[in-house]
């Protein structure tokens, strides 16, 4: 991998649901370490685009290239092994496991020891330490023994992001991590996101323009499955089309 090789390249990526073109011929390049926001009205195809990048959904057209390797036909776990991690707009935890067990699973995911059957998990102190360290980074250390479903919504969202960080990803997809949080929780989540390792490329879906523009260097605006515009945040903010669909029309 060369230094200036893109983390992610999408070429004419599409996903059609019957007649609905949820994602339609999207081109996108994300550089290593880039902070990139994806914005657009509800139903624009943002989550579907993430599903195509992470492999939850197969693309009906186009190519997905991750760190120079084409991954278009690979299932999600093989893309994760190549350095991609994601969070979900609707929290996806392991509800009846403890917070620590949730995190241990995330730590095991890319570790060959996940198939070990003849030793207790507790006999791997390095895994335990790694899990606890990530939980501490996200301010969840106090809840290690709590069952995930009993966490407050705000802490569940934190755990959602924490799980994605356990495998030391090189490309992180965050699907509306602030959605549904109180103002205080949102601020603390934004602080977490700001502090993420700068070597990780981050794609952030965010419906609040202020938050998106504060976080990102580059912005992609999706509209009806297509890229309306893409560029530096200043250029995008000044784009009259964006203002029309996003800012100008009161009822979108």
């Amino acid at each position: 991998m060369t230094a200036d090789q893109p983390a992610l390249v999408l070429e004419q990526v599409s996903r059609h649901f019957g007649g609905l073109k949820a994602v339609d011929g999207v081109n996108l390049t994300v550089r290593p370490g880039e902070r990139h926001a994806v914005i657009g009205p509800n139903g624009a195809g943002k989550t579907t685009l993430f599903n195509l990048i992470s492999g939850e959904l197969p693309a009906t057209g186009g190519r997905v290239v991750l760190f120079g390797d084409e991954v278009t036909a690979l299932p999600p776990h093989q893309r994760a092994a190549r350095g991609i991690a994601r969070t979900f707009q609707i929290t996806k935890l392991f509800p009846n496991l403890t917070v620590l067990e949730n995190m241990l699973l995330a730590c095991e995911a890319l570790d060959a020891r996940k198939l070990v059957m003849h030793r207790a998990l507790g006999s791997y102190p390095d895994m335990m330490q790694r899990a606890k360290a990530v939980l501490a980074d996200f301010g969840l250390a106090a809840f290690e023994q709590e069952t995930a479903r009993n966490l407050s919504y705000g802490d569940q969202r934190k755990l959602e992001v924490a799980l994605s960080m356990a495998g030391r990803p090189r490309l992180l997809l965050l699907d509306e991590p602030m959605a549904g949080l109180s103002a205080g929780e949102s601020t603390s989540m934004q602080a977490i996101l700001t502090k993420l390792d700068r070597s990780i490329a981050v794609l952030l879906i965010e419906h609040d323009m202020d938050i998106a523009f504060a976080f990102a260097e580059r912005v992609t605006v999706l509209h009806q499955g297509r890229v309306l515009t893409e560029g530096t945040k200043d250029a995008v903010a000044a784009d009259p089309n964006v203002q029309q669909i996003y800012l100008g029309t009161p009822a979108q």
């Binding site: 994760a80 392991f94 699973l105």
Partner: peptide, 9 residues
């Protein structure tokens, strides 16, 4: 689903 996206086959 989450297991798959974390990297488990």
């Amino acid at each position: 689903g989450r297991m798959k996206s974390l990297g488990f086959n």
